[in-house]
Design a protein around this nucleic acid. Structure first.
Ligand SMILES: NC(=O)c1ccc[n+]([C@@H]2O[C@H](COP(=O)([O-])OP(=O)(O)OC[C@H]3O[C@@H](n4cnc5c(N)ncnc54)[C@H](O)[C@@H]3O)[C@@H](O)[C@H]2O)c1
Ligand SMILES: NC(=O)c1ccc[n+]([C@@H]2O[C@H](COP(=O)([O-])OP(=O)(O)OC[C@H]3O[C@@H](n4cnc5c(N)ncnc54)[C@H](O)[C@@H]3O)[C@@H](O)[C@H]2O)c1
Lengths: 216, 216
DNA sequence: TTTTTATCGATAAAAAAATATCGATTTCTC
DNA sequence: GAGAAATCGATATTTTTTTATCGATAAAAA
């Protein structure tokens, strides 16, 4: 009987931890050490070393007994899983206060994301450059998505406009959406959507705090 | 043999979905319907109705066969779990571009959070008001945390200063931290910390997009 | 009124994720 | 060079989370 090799894709919880390992590893790259063990990572982050090792399995990198993993290799391999060694162009819609903060944020470039244009409906913003990224009128977006073959859209418009903007982008060929509007938007099942729900994270915090205060 | 009733606290995955149900329910409050069923919520959000029902169990609200759940009751009960019916005061540190976006964001008030002051080291910001919230020098923070009994701190400083700011706040009695800096910060085990890791969410998006493109 | 139907919610099963065990390996210490 | 110590990684177990089953219930339809 032939046993098919089950291709195990990286679980979401693992992906989330991998990005955190990356930031720890990134800090450590400065220091002189070449290796880091699962135990060390776990200690720094307050996790279980076994879990760290299990997660790192998905990188395909082998560790060395007594030494741990080669930092440079890990760093590269984790970025590879996240596809952060390549850079995808992206459009951002809604150049308001959050949109401008994101436009001005350099770090996403090392996270595989290059925002190449912004879009808005506010005439005062159109034509302006924010951190060297030009803002266009939203009606330019259909044409530009196709012409520049942009695959990622970032939604920073008010909740009330989010669905419309999403529809517009999806209709014109966007493949993945990063949504900051605090609302559920509908997309076809083949479109990737990630909600950067800040309120989700806030909800966990306020819930835990309430539990804690209740328990004295 | 006495069987102890196990007190099951709300699982984190459930909490996350609850905040999403809330936004769906919120939209529906406008419409004329008084009830919503797990099936409807599931359809809107592309989830399994059984899972929705399981999640809603944690609210303690009973549904009605054939009708579903009373929207108003659900709305209240979910906010109760998240502790969003109460409001906690919070301090925000780092009134840069992201900090200012958050300071200007009204919606967090309905998520149990009231930011009552901002802090920075940039002299140009000190004394300014952003969305009616005054910015103070960071050296005022120890005194004010204690005097105003503030429990939540929001970290919007650069990664390089995050640990220092966290330490300062923890030393002065902060109980919960909402961290936007893309870095692992160390806190004592009794301090609640939630990382609003945007790059985590971005990582999932870029990973999925790469998988999708690979698969053609 | 009776029947049909949609939904709830208790319980059970399956799947996924986290945690544990332990032999193999390799560096470090003596 | 021998033994001790730390870590990896394969396998197994436990826990958590998701999904399924199905009788009970109450509104809607007949
Ligand atoms: N500011 C925050 O801290 C924060 C936090 C979490 C979530 N969000 C969400 O992010 C989104 C943006 O928030 P913000 O604070 O930047 O709001 P904002 O009002 O400052 O910016 C919204 C921008 O979108 C533009 N816009 C409106 N409709 C548009 C359309 N149809 N097409 C293109 N552009 C359009 C507006 O002109 C404006 O520039 C909102 O959905 C908000 O709920 C904001
Ligand atoms: N801008 C974004 O879109 C974005 C996205 C994700 C994460 N972040 C993170 O959020 C944080 C803030 O980002 P930003 O874009 O607003 O940066 P920013 O440089 O605009 O703002 C940082 C602010 O912190 C202040 N500051 C520096 N050291 C301080 C200290 N020790 N005490 C008090 N204040 C201090 C600075 O004066 C400045 O006003 C960073 O850690 C960044 O990595 C930002």
């Amino acid at each position: 009987m032939i046993k098919l090799e089950k291709i195990k894709s990286t679980p979401i919880p693992t992906l989330k931890r991998l990005t955190r390992y990356l930031s720890v590893i990134h800090q450590l790259k400065e220091s002189k050490t070449d290796y880091i063990s699962s135990t060390e990572i776990a200690n720094i982050m307050g996790l279980d070393p076994i879990q760290v090792r299990k997660d790192l399995e998905f990188t395909g990198i082998s560790g060395f007994p007594r030494l741990g993993f080669k930092i440079d290799d890990l760093h590269f391999a984790i970025k590879e899983i996240l596809n952060w060694n390549n850079t995808e162009d992206a459009f951002l819609v809604g150049a308001g206060s959050l949109g401008q903060a994101i436009l001005g944020y350099d770090r996403f470039k090392s996270c595989g994301l290059k925002i190449i244009a912004g879009f808005d409906i506010n005439p005062e913003l159109i034509g302006k450059k924010i951190s060297n990224i030009e803002i266009y009128h939203i009606n330019k977006i259909p044409n530009l998505i196709k012409r520049l073959n942009v695959k990622i859209g970032i939604i920073c418009v008010p909740a009330s406009s989010a669905q419309d903007v999403v529809d517009l982008m999806v209709d014109n060929g966007i493949l993945a959406l990063w949504n900051f509007a605090p609302i559920h938007v509908n997309v076809p099942s083949d479109i990737i959507i990630e909600n950067a729900q800040l309120s989700q994270s806030l909800g966990i915090l306020t819930h835990k705090l309430a539990e804690k205060i209740k328990a004295y």
